[in-house]
């Protein structure tokens, strides 16, 4: 929850403090299946909000920043939970899979070590016990880790609606602060991460004011390499800096084509993309941009085994 979530911004541009901390009256409707959830969504329209782990929505309700009349509780939809290896080597993760399950999954540790490495950075154990993958992606906090991971891993996001099922690339899903490509009548049901090669390089790095706080800046990156070590494709994603996770295409291009060295990484950093950084009372935009340059360089060094440092 970034600071903005707890402040009312008035039409005159001023900030207003919120007076209460108990949710307004609401009804909770348990959904028993995806079809049921979709029908409830259709029935209640914008009066309703979906709730899974509740780690972002509950504070919003308590502060009455949102006052939906109805919560559709999807926690009981067993089909939406679990991690599965598909025949093509891709990994399918149900939207209701808790952060803690991602963190502890042997399959992810083996197949997608980037996810396993990043999970401990997400909030605290108590929150990870409840928070869900689908909830984090749908909420789309600019500083959240999972959206960035999905982009770095080239994941696709599966959405169900009365119109059917559609798949959307994570690259196209996140559109701004708390804004995604999900339509109001859609339910995010799963994330599919394509097979990765054992030679894939990766790094995850973030800096927050305290462990578990929202990142002021973070980097998730993957790089595919040829047998000679040359980078064939890179996905470098920054989060916490602008309105949603962003790839750094110029930096990606600069690192592709040869086997990186500390010197070539420093050289590539000259091509670091221009990013619009936000400013709040935790970090100015200048500081976020400084962190972006430092952490992107460190992430590259880490991915290719040149970093002697232990933490950001």
């Amino acid at each position: 929850m970034a600071a903005m979530a707890f402040m009312h911004y008035l039409p005159n541009g001023k900030v207003c403090t919120i007076p209460v901390m108990k949710p307004a009256p609401l009804d909770i409707l348990p959904a028993t299946s995806v079809a049921h959830a979709l029908s409830l969504l259709g029935e209640h329209g914008d009066q309703a909000r979906l709730i899974a782990g509740g780690q972002s929505l509950m504070p919003i309700l308590a502060m009455r920043l949102a006052a939906p009349a109805i919560l559709i509780d999807i926690n009981g939809i067993a089909d939406l939970r679990g991690i599965r290896l598909e025949a093509d080597g891709s990994v399918l993760i149900g939207a209701l899979t808790r952060h803690r399950d991602l963190e502890r999954s042997p399959l992810l540790a083996e197949r997608l070590p980037l996810i396993a490495a990043a999970m401990p950075w997400i909030a605290h154990v108590q929150i990870r016990n409840r928070g869900t993958l689908g909830g984090s992606l749908s909420h789309a906090d600019p500083a959240a880790e999972l959206p960035a991971l999905c982009i770095a891993l080239c994941a696709t996001i599966e959405l169900h609606s009365p119109r059917g099922v559609r798949q959307i690339a994570a690259d196209d899903f996140f559109q701004g602060v708390f804004a995604t490509a999900r339509a109001d009548d859609e339910l995010l049901t799963a994330v599919r991460v394509p097979a990765t090669t054992p030679a894939q390089r990766w790094a995850f790095i973030e800096l927050a004011r305290r462990h578990g706080d929202f990142a002021l800046c973070g980097i998730a990156l993957t790089a595919d390499c040829s047998p000679t070590g040359a980078v064939t494709q890179a996905r470098i994603v920054v989060f916490g800096v602008s309105d949603c996770p962003r790839r750094l295409p110029h930096l990606e291009s600069a690192i592709v084509g040869s086997a990186p060295s500390p010197a070539s990484i420093d050289q590539a950093m000259q091509s670091l993309d221009t990013v619009e950084a936000r400013s709040d009372h935790h970090a100015s935009s200048e500081y976020r941009l400084e962190l972006l340059a430092t952490l992107a360089r460190r992430a590259l060094r880490q991915a290719f085994g040149f970093d002697e440092r232990t933490a950001p």
């Binding site: 600071a3 979530a5 707890f6 504070p59 004011r209 305290r210 462990h211 578990g212 706080d213």
Partner: peptide, 17 residues
């Protein structure tokens, strides 16, 4: 206007700090 009216904005040392 108070900007630090929640524990997301008013940070205190926890066990990790």
């Amino acid at each position: 206007q108070l900007l630090s009216g929640s524990y997301a904005d008013y940070l205190m040392a926890t066990s990790t700090e």
